[in-house]
Amino acid sequence: MSSTHLPQLSPILVEDLVRMALAEDLGRAGDITTYATIGPEMTATAAMNSREHGVVAGLPLAVAAFRAIDPRVKVELLAEDGDRVAPGQALARISGPARSVLSAERVALNFLMHLSGVASYTARFADEIADTPARVTCTRKTLPGLRAVEKYAVRLGGGSNHRYGLDDAVLIKDNHIAVAGGVSKAIDAARAYAGHLVKVEVEVDSLDQMREALTAAPDVILLDNMDPATLTEAVEFNRRFHQLSGADYAKARARVLLEASGNVRLDTIRAIAETAVDFISTSKITMAAPTLDIGLDIEIG
């Protein structure tokens, strides 16, 4: 990923998350283990090392954790967010008052391991379809309080972001359709309510619903739990509806985009992408991502 296209984290967001995590960890009495065993005059030097192959994400939060505990702690970054790393690779060197290094260690690692896990798992999905036009995208299924940073990690792993919340895009789902009285009625109502900069997406679970949706001109149609054969039919119908040839279809801006969702796994995403849908959304890249094993090793001597 080009450095000019790397996602950025707001310093205010980082500070708020780190302070919340430190307050939770330090509790009312602080790090009593470290206070009891480490003298205030002692210093320490440590390295944060990756123990697995993966994609790094969360270094700004790790750095902020050490600095929030003690501005005297020095952190030298040896990697950048978005880097692919190997087992044994050092990500950062930390030095300073030993009490401060040890008290910040767990919060720093928690953010770094979790977000690197999200980025690494996303990269596995993205790599499976890297030679297709389709993009893997996340959902609103994120850990409470961590949505912004998890979506940041998804982008570092080569995925794309869906809406951040209920307020930045319209996504009409099956329950909305049932209450509104139909697909086209729900889309028309959304268009009448939302501003001209707000995208409108509608979820459908059949080709008949898709045909009705196309006549109401949403920006995106979410094809829910359709097998590859049905997805291929949906893409072909979309081509014919917009009167586009195969070559022009992928490049056309003035057409409805198609997003596939449901039953998306590492062993199924390739077949879904080969149907020529534009996006493939899955909650697995945030909700099922294993942490990346990263350790903080104190250097002795």
Score class of each variant (00 low, 15 high):
residue 36 A to G: 05
residue 37 T to W: 10
residue 39 G to C: 10
residue 39 G to K: 09
residue 40 P to M: 05
residue 42 M to N: 05
residue 42 M to D: 04
residue 43 T to Q: 11
residue 44 A to I: 06
residue 44 A to M: 14
residue 46 A to V: 12
residue 47 A to H: 12
residue 47 A to K: 10
residue 47 A to R: 05
residue 48 M to L: 13
residue 52 E to Q: 11
residue 53 H to S: 14
residue 53 H to G: 09
residue 54 G to C: 05
residue 55 V to H: 08
residue 55 V to R: 06
residue 55 V to P: 05
residue 57 A to F: 01
residue 57 A to N: 01
residue 58 G to L: 11
residue 58 G to M: 09
residue 58 G to V: 01
residue 59 L to P: 03
residue 59 L to I: 07
residue 59 L to M: 07
residue 60 P to H: 10
residue 60 P to L: 06
residue 61 L to I: 07
residue 61 L to C: 14
residue 61 L to G: 11
residue 62 A to C: 05
residue 65 A to D: 11
residue 65 A to H: 03
residue 66 F to K: 03
residue 66 F to M: 07
residue 66 F to P: 04
residue 68 A to L: 04
residue 68 A to G: 09
residue 70 D to Y: 03
residue 70 D to V: 02
residue 72 R to A: 10
residue 72 R to I: 09
residue 73 V to T: 10
residue 74 K to E: 14
residue 75 V to Y: 02
residue 75 V to C: 08
residue 76 E to L: 07
residue 79 A to P: 15
residue 79 A to D: 12
residue 80 E to Y: 10
residue 81 D to R: 00
residue 83 D to Y: 00
residue 83 D to P: 01
residue 85 V to D: 01
residue 85 V to W: 02
residue 85 V to E: 00
residue 86 A to E: 11
residue 88 G to F: 07
residue 90 A to I: 08
residue 90 A to C: 13
residue 91 L to C: 01
residue 92 A to R: 00
residue 92 A to W: 00
residue 93 R to H: 07
residue 93 R to A: 05
residue 94 I to W: 00
residue 97 P to C: 15
residue 100 S to W: 07
residue 102 L to A: 08
residue 102 L to N: 04
residue 103 S to M: 02
residue 104 A to L: 03
residue 104 A to R: 02
residue 104 A to E: 08
residue 105 E to I: 01
residue 107 V to L: 07
residue 108 A to Q: 01
residue 109 L to E: 09
residue 109 L to H: 06
residue 111 F to C: 11
residue 113 M to W: 07
residue 114 H to V: 08
residue 114 H to Q: 14
residue 116 S to V: 12
residue 117 G to S: 12
residue 119 A to Y: 15
residue 120 S to M: 09
residue 123 A to D: 12
residue 124 R to D: 15
residue 125 F to M: 14
residue 126 A to P: 08
residue 128 E to Q: 13
residue 128 E to K: 08
residue 128 E to M: 11
residue 129 I to Q: 06
residue 129 I to G: 03
residue 130 A to L: 13
residue 130 A to V: 07
residue 131 D to T: 14
residue 131 D to H: 09
residue 131 D to E: 15
residue 132 T to S: 08
residue 135 R to C: 08
residue 135 R to H: 13
residue 137 T to R: 13
residue 137 T to P: 03
residue 137 T to K: 12
residue 138 C to Y: 00
residue 139 T to L: 01
residue 139 T to H: 00
residue 139 T to D: 04
residue 140 R to M: 09
residue 142 T to Y: 02
residue 144 P to R: 05
residue 144 P to L: 04
residue 144 P to A: 07
residue 145 G to S: 02
residue 147 R to L: 10
residue 147 R to Q: 14
residue 148 A to R: 11
residue 148 A to I: 11
residue 148 A to Q: 15
residue 154 V to R: 03
residue 160 S to D: 14
residue 161 N to Q: 04
residue 162 H to Y: 13
